[in-house]
Design a protein around this nucleic acid. Structure first.
Lengths: 150, 150
DNA sequence: GTCAATGCAAACTATTTGCAAACTG
DNA sequence: CAGTTTGCAAATAGTTTGCATTGAC
C-alpha cells in the first residue's frame, strides 16, 4: 500500500521532471522515496538525517528537490508555527487543515471543505481571486487540556 | 481620533508594564507612539527606520518591545507570506483576517466571525481547545486579476 | 541602591547561492 | 558533448543573546 503509493509518487515526479526538461536522477528518486516512507509531516532536518546512507546527499539538494516537489504538487509546505518549515506529502490525499497542539506537538487533521467554503464566500464578496491559503490553529489537544487543568 | 487612540494605547501599555513589574521608559513610549501612527500593518525594519530620530533605538530593543506589546495584547504578529515578520496593532479593533494580494502586496481585511465559527465547530468536534489561529489567503485583488488576464 | 532596560556586537539558524566537478540524456 | 545536477563552502537575512553601561523607581 505505502510501497505502491511511493512508487506511484516517484513515477509521477519523473513524469513531471521529464515534462519540464529536468533530469531524472538517483538522488531525486531517493529523496522522494524517503519522503513517502516518512511520517506524514516532516521537517527538512529530519529528512536530511534519514538520507545519510551510503552516499551523502547535501542539504542544498534536499531543499532544491523539495521546491521541485512542491511545484509538482506532490508535497506541500506547512507552517506549524516554528522557525523552520515543515512539509507534508499530499499525493493522493484530500485537502485538509491542521489543529496544532502547542503542548505536545500533535497535529490533528480535519477536512478543509467547510472552512474552504467560507473562505471562498468571503473572497467572492471582496472580488478577490484565491490562489492558495493556509490556516494554522493552535491550542491544546484533549489530553494536554486535561493535564493543564490539574 | 488617531491621537486619542495613540495615547490610550500608551496608557494601556503603561498599565500592563506596571502590572508586570516592568519599567515605564521613554523608549517604550516612543515605540508605541510610532506604531500607532504608522500604517496599520508594518514590518520591523520600517518601524526601526522611523525611530531614527534624535536618539537611536537599537533593533534589539524594537524586537523586545514588540514582544511585550504582543503579550499585552496591543499588537499581533501577522504572517504575510514573507521571510520577515509583519505586525499590526489591534488595540480597539475587532477580530479580522487578511486577503493578501501576491501581485501588489495589498492587504484586504475581512471580519473573522464566519470563519471563526467554522473553526470553533471543528475544534469542538475534535475536543481541541483553541488558543489562537492565523489564516492567510493569498491570491490577486480585483485590479491585479484584471491586469493578469491581459 | 537595586533591578530592569538599553545598545552594541557577536551568535544563531534556516535557507539560499556561486562555482567547480560529476552526471544525464 | 551540452546542459543539468550536485556538494561544498560561503553568504544571507531576520532575529536573538551576552554583557557592560545606563536608567527607572
Amino acid at each position: 500500500m505505502t510501497v505502491k503509493k511511493t512508487s506511484d509518487a516517484i513515477e509521477t515526479f519523473r513524469r513531471y521532471l521529464k515534462l519540464h526538461n529536468h533530469n531524472i536522477t538517483e538522488t531525486r528518486d531517493r529523496i522522494v522515496k524517503e519522503i513517502f516512507m516518512m511520517n506524514y509531516h516532516f521537517e527538512v532536518a529530519d529528512l536530511w538525517k534519514r538520507l545519510h546512507g551510503e552516499t551523502q546527499i547535501s542539504s542544498s539538494t534536499v531543499y532544491r528537490t523539495l521546491d521541485l516537489l512542491v511545484e509538482a504538487g506532490l508535497v506541500k509546505m506547512v507552517d506549524l508555527g516554528e522557525a523552520h518549515a515543515h512539509y507534508e506529502h499530499i499525493f493522493g490525499r484530500r485537502d485538509h487543515d491542521h489543529l496544532v497542539c502547542t503542548d505536545c506537538g500533535k497535529v490533528i487533521e480535519f477536512p478543509a471543505t467547510a472552512i474552504n467554503d467560507e473562505i471562498e464566500k468571503t473572497a467572492a464578496e471582496k472580488e478577490f481571486t484565491i490562489s492558495s491559503h493556509s490556516i494554522q490553529i493552535y491550542g491544546s489537544c484533549r489530553n494536554c487540556a486535561a493535564k493543564n487543568k490539574k
